[in-house]
Design a protein around this nucleic acid. Structure first.
Length: 296
RNA sequence: UACUAGAAUCUGUAUU
């Protein structure tokens, strides 16, 4: 028998939050039925991800009315919903509440802080972002060692620096991560760290730097170029009019055993189109259709 | 509580 969580998982995969809410309501209307705190939490996260902060708020309030105690997961989900929607003041309010919470299970952790940090950076609230980051690093500070920066934290910062045009600072941060690591050597770069900088370098017209970084990935344990890496390169080559290089990168990606997705196909098709090679673009499109490729 | 969160948070294409 299908459980509520499985149904909701499927609806999340389809990104159908309306049906998910409907289903949730229907379940709740069954006599004697009570949703668990985890189910509420899961749906709050889903709604937040789908850019529905209002619906997330209502569900959170309903959760309280149903006497389900929200954990830090639930608060973080709500914070994420606000942060993604640019409702920074609301996000900060949730964060402050969590920070002052007596109940240990509601206190912010590294993920909570990462969500907030990302929201602040996206809203260009850098001063506040740095304040949060400093608190995360201070074991005796208000966050008391539960929020030590991890690689997600640094990836948010690298991304913020890149988007702010501070490519050199971002590169310096990646370098520090690569050489000895940060947080006492505990934090090392992952594929996202590299990809973030590679894409920024590509978009800044620094192809050589991007290629150097791709080569450097091999020297980092557990890191190797993925489809995102190749998409960044192919996009850059295409926009620079270097279709042959774009094609070569695509072949190299396949030779590495990586599965092409919609993004990389689109990038390569666009590159072909720009270069006037409509036939090749069409061939790629047909290939995509044959593979029944789904948006990711 | 029973390694017990059900995708909690980071990067790429196109449209703008």
């Amino acid at each position: 028998m299908a459980r509520a969580k499985d149904v909701l998982t499927e609806l999340q995969a389809r990104r159908d939050w309306r049906t998910a809410l409907e289903y949730f309501r229907w379940m709740k209307a069954q006599p004697g039925f009570q949703h668990s705190a985890k189910l509420y939490t899961g749906l709050i996260h889903f709604l937040g991800r789908e850019g529905q902060p209002h619906a997330a708020t209502l569900l959170f309030q309903e959760m309280l009315l149903e006497r389900q105690r929200p954990s830090h997961y639930a608060y973080t989900g709500l914070l994420n919903a606000y942060g993604r929607a640019g409702m920074i003041d609301d996000a900060l309010e949730v964060f402050d509440y969590m920070r002052g919470c007596d109940d240990d299970s509601c206190r912010p952790n590294t993920v909570t802080c990462n969500v907030l940090l990302g929201s602040l950076c996206k809203a260009c609230r850098y001063e506040k972002a740095l304040e949060v980051f400093a608190d995360m690093r201070d074991p005796h500070g208000p966050l008391a060692d539960r929020c030590r920066p991890d690689i997600f934290t640094y990836n948010v910062l690298v991304d913020a620096l890149c988007r702010g045009g501070q490519l050199d600072a971002a590169a310096a941060l990646l370098h520090a991560l690569r050489v000895g690591g940060l947080e006492g050597g505990a934090v090392r770069p992952n594929v996202v760290t590299f990809n973030t900088l590679i894409d920024a370098a590509c978009k800044a017209g620094r192809a050589a730097q991007a290629e150097e970084l791709v080569a450097a990935m091999a020297g980092q344990p557990g890191v190797r170029p993925d489809v995102v890496t190749y998409t960044a390169l192919i996009d850059a080559y295409g926009k620079a009019g270097l279709v042959a290089k774009a094609q070569a990168a695509f072949q190299k990606m396949r030779a590495a055993g990586l599965r092409a997705d919609v993004h990389v196909y689109t990038a390569l098709m666009t590159a072909c189109g720009r270069a006037g090679d409509v036939e090749q673009a069409e061939a790629l499109f047909n290939e995509m259709k044959r593979m029944h490729m789904k948006p990711t």
